[in-house]
Lab assay of single mutants.
Amino acid sequence: LQLFIKTLTGKTFTVEMEPSDTIENLKAKIQDKEGIPPDQQRLIFAGKQLEDGRTLSDYNIQKESTLHLVL
């Protein structure tokens, strides 16, 4: 599923993930694309901070959802 990642600077980029992927996987993918170390990434969806060990489906993140990346 394609997700939109929006940064505080207003930049938006996309990543391609599976619902079974963990937040950790997502942070690694963001590191590949943007060079931001996972330990500096905080991801927010629907007002909640996402925890590394959980999956996208745990948070009911669907295709074309927008996640906010806070550094």
Rank of each mutant, 00 (worst) to 15 (best):
N25M: 15
E16S: 07
S65R: 03
A46E: 08
G10K: 06
N60V: 05
I23L: 05
P19D: 11
G53D: 07
I36N: 03
S57L: 12
T7L: 11
V70F: 12
L8E: 12
D21M: 11
K6P: 01
P37Y: 06
A28Y: 10
T66D: 04
L3P: 01
L71N: 08
L26T: 03
F45H: 12
K27F: 02
G35V: 02
Q40I: 10
S57I: 07
L69E: 01
Q31G: 14
H68R: 06
P38E: 08
M17A: 12
K33G: 05
L8N: 10
E64G: 13
L56P: 03
D39C: 06
K6Y: 08
I30K: 00
Q41P: 01
I61A: 02
Q31V: 04
I5H: 00
E34M: 13
Q62N: 15
T14R: 15
I36P: 05
M17S: 11
F4N: 14
L50I: 05
S20I: 07
M17K: 01
D21E: 13
N25R: 13
T12A: 10
R42G: 05
L50S: 01
L1M: 12
P19K: 07
T22L: 15
A28Q: 15
N25Y: 12
R54T: 09
G10P: 02
I61Y: 02
H68L: 14
I44G: 03
D32R: 14
G47F: 04
M17P: 02
D39T: 14
T14P: 12
G53T: 09
D21R: 06
P37D: 14
K63T: 08
E64P: 05
D58Y: 13
L8F: 10
T55K: 08
F4L: 13
I61W: 03
F13L: 07
E34S: 08
K63W: 09
T66H: 12
E34Q: 11
D58W: 15
L69K: 00
P19M: 13
V15P: 00
N60F: 07
K29T: 08
L3V: 10
T7P: 12
A46W: 12
V70K: 14
T12C: 05
R54Q: 13
F45V: 03
L1P: 04
R54F: 11
R54D: 05
F45L: 06
L50F: 02
E24V: 15
Q31N: 14
G35M: 06
T12K: 09
F45D: 01
N25K: 13
Q41I: 13
P37E: 08
N25I: 12
S65E: 10
Q49V: 10
T7A: 06
T66M: 15
F45W: 08
L26E: 00
F13Q: 02
E64T: 08
K48N: 06
T55Q: 11
G53K: 13
E16R: 15
E24R: 08
L1Y: 09
F4S: 08
I23H: 01
D39N: 12
V15Q: 02
S57N: 15
Q41W: 04
